[in-house]
Design a protein around this nucleic acid. Structure first.
Lengths: 344, 344
DNA sequence: TTGTAAGCGTTATCAA
DNA sequence: TTGATAACGCTTACAA
């Protein structure tokens, strides 16, 4: 009944079925036309009996495939991230792949360590929401192991990797245009440090451009605030500065993501102000709580699940040898209007 | 300069350094006292030069270690889950282990498939927030491969696995006692279907008990509502039922987790009611948005990060052969008072 | 201190 | 339709 030796191998199956390893291997590989129906039945039965599971390590060593895909994300506790992972996971599972998930915390050094680790595990592909600090390592990973790499959310212009994200430029234009149309005279943009992170930069640039296009009077650089979500004092003072400067105007804030939005909401409430009466608010991303705060927070929705599944599909295609040209997929966003941005 | 052959192996390093594979292997294993300083330097240099990374598949095949730990969670998009993963990840990384993350969606069939998959990957250990439907599979995994298994959040009484979670009984007593002390006459408990999921059952039982202990008048079974977070109509009608039944009383709702809380908040708002004026609210877990809704939602905080890191530590201990008795770690929770449960 | 050789569990190439 | 046998990249006796 119960095998007491710990691991049952292909050899045990072969012995029990009275055939050779090769035949069992053929069975495992699904090459049934090379096996007589009788032995096939027998092997099937023995595998059940022994509860045999092929060893992926051995399989990978021989076949140069690990059936592992790496995922390096900036912050796994961000709902944007998990939604993407969810999409990727479904596709991977469907194709027999598993996800090795790594959290870079936006630190290039951690990202680098994880790249190494993933390389050791012989991952068949990887997608990374990059800190931007490891171009050489990524390039080497891609070149040396021919490992397909897909960038999510954040581009690296210098490297030609498949990239999946949104049309940031268009999204910001749409957001600003909407806010202006709602009648806001003064619009600020609150973002995490722009640095060299592409979506942040694209949104930043687009924001400036949007104001210029839409309304000549808004050509002020001062309405962009870079903040660290962990530095509450800085956030508070920046909010205060904007409030002071826009006194008496119909004003709105656009935030670069939901984490910034949440911090800002707390700060606004602490100041005893109300959304949208005292200040309107709109945010990128569409966290679950967006509908539940005040009369709802208007958001710019990214198709996160689809981004994730597209990423996985691209990787799998490359793994399976498809040689299409490097591509960038930019999804359109959707403006979800809620109570935080009423007409003034 | 640039090796054009894709993978550089231990053999390449050996050749380039003019030594044998064994010597390089000794270097990799950190057994420096068995190598002359000169060759050590040489190997070190060559490894740098060639950018060599040991192949984990080969290493694992030989040494019977994959340096992989599996994580089967119910829902990766739940902030409770990601906080735990975050804790586990930090510990794993520190010890050279990587996390293979699997999302069961609370479906036993998916959980089962993932158990198989993880087994194939020869994971060195696994932690699972189990659906409860795969006891036989878990037991077999544990027995057959001697793979350490740790249960998170949810127990399986029949199986003797290390388990990490919170003291649900105490937490509920504490919550109910607090609400009563705040002056609420009528307290309802909203939970996802209790089924055989241990924390749900424990909280359920504790809730009944708490009412009996604290206040004889509350001995009504009717104030427990089981709902499916995807069935909005059901939730709406259950809320309506409780509201109708408790008309005129000072009333509060305790929710079993933050997902339920959020759905409930939406439903309450839709009905045009206010928190806490019309109804008080308190929830298990402490999602980031708890502070931002209305005057804040009072929560029962679980030490999620610590739960995650404890889980990983337990697994690693077992992997490293520590033979301590099976243990259950139950952390205490902390009541975080906010505006949703004022004194009446 | 170093090298040789066997073996980990597979798959793939050959013969039979 | 099957079965030997040689890899895959590494670790680990055992020799030298």
């Amino acid at each position: 009944m119960k095998k007491e030796d710990s691991k049952v191998t292909i050899y045990d199956v072969a012995a029990a079925a009275g055939v050779s390893k090769s035949t069992v291997s053929r069975y495992l590989g699904g090459r049934f036309h090379e096996i007589s129906p009788k032995t096939q039945k027998k092997i099937e039965h023995v595998i059940q009996q022994l509860n045999y599971r092929p060893n992926n390590l051995a399989r990978g060593l021989k076949g140069n495939r690990s059936y592992l895909i790496g995922a390096i994300v900036a912050d796994i506790t961000n709902p944007y991230t998990t939604a993407i992972l969810r999409g990727a996971e479904d596709v991977c599972k469907q194709h027999g792949y598993s996800l090795l998930i790594c959290n870079s915390d936006n630190q290039p050094s951690k990202e680098r360590e994880y790249i190494s680790m993933l390389q050791s595990h012989q991952i068949d592909g990887v997608f990374v929401q990059t800190t931007g600090g490891n171009q050489a390592f990524l390039q080497e990973l891609s070149r040396n192991g021919e490992t397909p790499i897909v960038l999510v959310d954040r581009k690296i212009p210098e490297l030609s990797f498949d990239t999946v994200g949104i049309d940031n430029h268009h999204a910001v234009l749409q957001a600003v245009s909407y806010l202006l149309k709602q009648g806001y005279e003064r619009i600020a943009y609150f973002t995490e440090p722009v640095q060299e992170i592409s979506p942040r930069r694209e949104r930043y640039v687009a924001f400036l451009e949007a104001l210029q296009i839409e309304n000549e009077e808004h050509q002020s650089l001062n309405d962009i605030y870079e903040l660290d979500v962990h530095d509450k004092d800085l956030l508070d003072s920046q909010l205060a500065a904007f409030l002071a400067d826009s006194k008496g105007q119909a004003r709105a804030i656009l935030t670069a993501n939901s984490v910034v939005a949440l911090k800002l909401i707390l700060s606004i409430k602490e100041k005893g102000l109300q959304i949208p009466k005292d200040i309107a608010l709109m945010s990128f991303d569409n966290p679950s709580w967006a509908a539940a705060i005040e009369s709802g927070i208007t958001t710019m929705v990214q198709p996160t699940y689809q981004i994730g599944s597209t990423v996985a599909e691209l990787i799998l295609k490359r793994i399976n040898g498809e040689q299409t040209a490097v591509q960038t997929v930019a999804y359109q966003t959707r403006l979800f209007e809620r109570g935080s941005t009423p007409k003034v």
